[in-house]
Design a protein around this nucleic acid. Structure first.
Lengths: 258, 258
DNA sequence: AAGAGTTCTGAATCGCTGT
DNA sequence: GACAGCGATTCAGAACTCT
């Protein structure tokens, strides 16, 4: 069964992203934001041995388990193929990651024919300190912004908005802003943070303002805590979110209704 | 013929990087810096500056021409295989690129078994502006810093130096500095810039100070204008540079003798 | 000589229309 | 499809010109 375009506006779908994406018609969305699992490969036992903190906030969720780069690539490729199919010719797509996964994402996108417009660097004002002191503090995440193919015309770009966000006078590709915390951070029924890598509202605000128009349909197939749809709605865009985890979906629904 | 380790210190070799690297013994260098062609894929059409009668002198050098991503990947993979072979177990390697090529470099490195320590982002204070305002100004280049394999021990890291360079209080992975210009920029016999992509001395100073020790051997197999060796020598490190282009080699020799 | 104003350029995957 | 031509609009920093 294929959903109608009208029927997919402002929905949160609980389900597997590949299964649910397959139900969407071709060329129906204007903007896609993907915050995939990062494949951190954290040697957690080694960190435990130092006995500093039990987990150092390392991501250790069930959805971040992949056995190999090949497994990870296969998942990402499948996801991107469906995303590319549902993009309008005028749509653009953002993905975010760290050095653990962003190079794979970018190379796969280029191999699939996506045309990269920019890399944008989120510089965190309050990164997790590197207490081992054997490498640089990792204070950044990288976003890739791309269109469906070389020569694709008509994607949205709000130059005035971009100008406000960059460090330079033109909108440049460096955004300095804090990580998600405080009251913005969703809590689960247990009072602990609901999601380990919730993205800040301001990050999504910049993405959506710069690269979409009012009334556009914004898709997030790996919605997590639903920041994408939450911000899209607040900016007069429509959203469609897909998330497999029931607890996250419950969190999203509560967030959207408040 | 294999060169002795003593024989390769402080040399500039004119020749094909793959051929010359193959002559080196295993595990002989402490640090590698690679500034490969970026495969910019610029349109044939020149970008016009509209307030003056001039064109942007984009990079159209022969050394940046590849038929496809596949061709590009083949070149990079061959280069990295040899680099990995000549790295000591305690060595580390830097590569630099932009969104055109850095994702491919990073993914290839991961696939080959390199272990990424950081991505470091060079934020340019004076980037080329985005004339037409259809995307973000591309104000950054990305460096990847890696060791030979997961669990490799003993690579150099000067935490004090790193602390001075980052934007945060700890040495973080964002470096803000201007592009190479002025008297630092090498000129050819015709008075024009010798090389279209010369890297600033300060960038290499940071790389070498942070990730090598005095007396270490620093290898640059794609030397260009020789900034790597020039800076290494000034910091009490030994260097080995390989460069195919005779004009660039002449420029390097003159630069080193002055 | 010093200072003010002008020109030039940098790893750029940058437009739209009409023929 | 390709290509020519029009035209909208950018910035830091070094080099250069003029006073």
């Amino acid at each position: 069964m294929t959903l109608t375009v009208a029927g997919i506006r402002n929905q949160v779908i609980q389900g597997d992203c590949l299964v649910e994406l397959a139900k969407l018609p071709d060329e129906c969305v204007d903007l896609i934001f993907i915050d995939p699992p990062y494949f951190l490969q954290l040697p957690g036992k080694k960190l435990l041995r130092w006995n500093v903190r039990s987990e150092v906030d390392g991501v250790d969720d069930e959805w971040d388990k992949f056995d190999s780069f090949e497994d990870y690539d296969r998942f990402i490729r499948g996801l991107l193929i469906e995303c590319r199919r549902v993009m309008k010719s005028t749509a653009s797509i953002w993905v975010i990651g760290t050095y653990h996964n962003i190079f794979r994402l970018g190379a796969l996108m280029q191999d699939m024919g996506f045309w990269i417009l920019n890399d944008v660097h989120w510089v965190k004002t309050n990164p997790m300190p590197n207490w081992l002191g054997v490498r640089f503090t990792n204070a950044t995440e990288t976003l890739i912004w791309a269109v469906r193919e070389q020569g694709a015309k008509g994607h949205a770009f709000d130059k005035q908005a971009a100008r406000e966000f960059g460090m330079g006078k033109i909108g440049d590709n460096v955004w300095v802003l804090p990580i998600c915390g405080g009251s913005q951070r969703l809590k689960g029924p247990d009072g602990l943070k609901l999601h380990s890598t919730q993205k800040p509202v301001e990050l999504l605000r910049r993405v959506i303002l710069c690269s979409s128009r009012p009334g556009d349909l914004v898709l997030d197939p790996v919605a997590g805590t639903g920041t994408t749809g939450f911000v899209a709605a607040s900016l007069g865009r429509d959203y469609l979110m897909i998330e497999a985890n029931a607890k996250y979906v419950a969190g999203i629904r509560e967030r959207l209704s408040s």
